[in-house]
């Protein structure tokens, strides 16, 4: 009976959870984010070393051109499985030494001049956006393919976009077909060279597609660098960079919870024994 009561209390607390999750999903507009499977999610999930090493390569060779990861030093990459030699090699591709942080070669003023904004630091990126890893994956893969761009150009060839073309573009751009004017305007901006991304709120932003071609990064482990593969690896690495202590946290957590369960069961037994003196 008493146990039932405590379960009731716990349920009250848990009531909060679906309620806030539901709301946060409902409030984000635009197409649904791709739901990737991330091996490091969940209480037992750990990072895949091979994916981390590949991701580090993508981040250093591609992202670091404009973005920094100011909270990560090259030396720390030993934690994801690189040897000191590999770390040195990776650091030298970025023109750095292994004691340096992963800072972009591009300075803030130059970046502001060419993009209009300073590219944000990526150290915490997977924790700093709604949708987390899936959002970043969506951004990396949400650009238009060349044939999609060609389709947009075709639609605009005669300078007008017919209703049939609006329908086609709506599919292509994952936009609401009930707002043809908006689609027409977006098509014009795409043609003029603005960077369109399905998953970015507002669709246009300063970053041109960073991973634009299959095989853009030649992986050292021989994995084929498709855009999806590179994106997944890069996001995996960024998730590690956002919280390098995650593995420690989870392994400590499992021990702590197991300990607490044992202790609580024992306390419950003692409680029953002591209270038996009253309810006999």
């Amino acid at each position: 009976m008493k146990l039932l009561r405590i379960i009731q209390a716990a349920l009250c607390v848990l009531l909060l959870l679906p309620f806030s999750v539901g709301v946060s999903l409902a409030s984000s507009g635009g197409p649904a984010l791709p739901q990737q499977s991330w091996g490091f999610h969940g209480p037992f999930g750990q990072f895949d070393t091979a994916a981390l090493k590949r991701g580090a390569q993508v981040v250093v060779e591609v992202c670091l051109a404009c973005h920094s990861l100011k909270y990560i030093k090259f030396d720390q990459l030993k934690q994801v499985g690189f040897t000191e030699m590999e770390v040195n090699a990776l650091a030298s591709t970025a023109g750095k030494n292994r004691k340096d942080a992963l800072l972009s070669a591009m300075d803030a003023d130059a970046a502001k001049e060419s993009f209009g904004i300073v590219p944000p630091d990526l150290s915490l990126m997977t924790k700093a956006r709604k949708g987390y890893e899936n959002y970043l994956y969506g951004i990396l893969t949400g650009y238009l393919k060349d044939e999609d761009k060609a389709a947009v150009d075709r639609a605009l060839e005669d300078d007008t976009v017919s209703d049939a073309e609006v329908k086609e573009l709506a599919m292509l751009l994952s936009m609401d077909p009930h707002h043809p004017d908006k689609i027409r305007e977006v098509a014009r901006r795409i043609k003029s060279g603005d960077n369109f991304n399905k998953f970015f709120p507002g669709n246009f932003f300063a970053m041109p597609a960073p991973l634009a071609a299959d095989g853009q990064v030649t992986y050292r482990d021989g994995t084929h660098g498709s855009i999806a593969q590179m994106s997944h690896d890069a996001v995996t690495f960024l998730a590690w960079a956002a919280e390098p202590t995650m593995a420690d946290r989870k392994s400590a957590g499992i021990k702590v919870i197991l300990y607490l369960i044992v202790l609580t069961v024992m306390l419950y037994a003692v409680k029953r024994r002591i209270w038996a003196r009253i309810h006999h």
Binding site: L263, L267, V270, R277
Partner: peptide, 28 residues
């Protein structure tokens, strides 16, 4: 009056063990 004197006086293994486990937790 309902207290079982025998039980009260016995060195209660359960309580001792629980206290020990609790103490380990506090130290941890």
């Amino acid at each position: 009056s309902m207290v079982d004197q025998h039980e009260e006086n016995r060195r209660d293994f359960l309580i001792m063990a629980t206290s020990a486990v609790g103490a380990v937790g506090v130290a941890g």
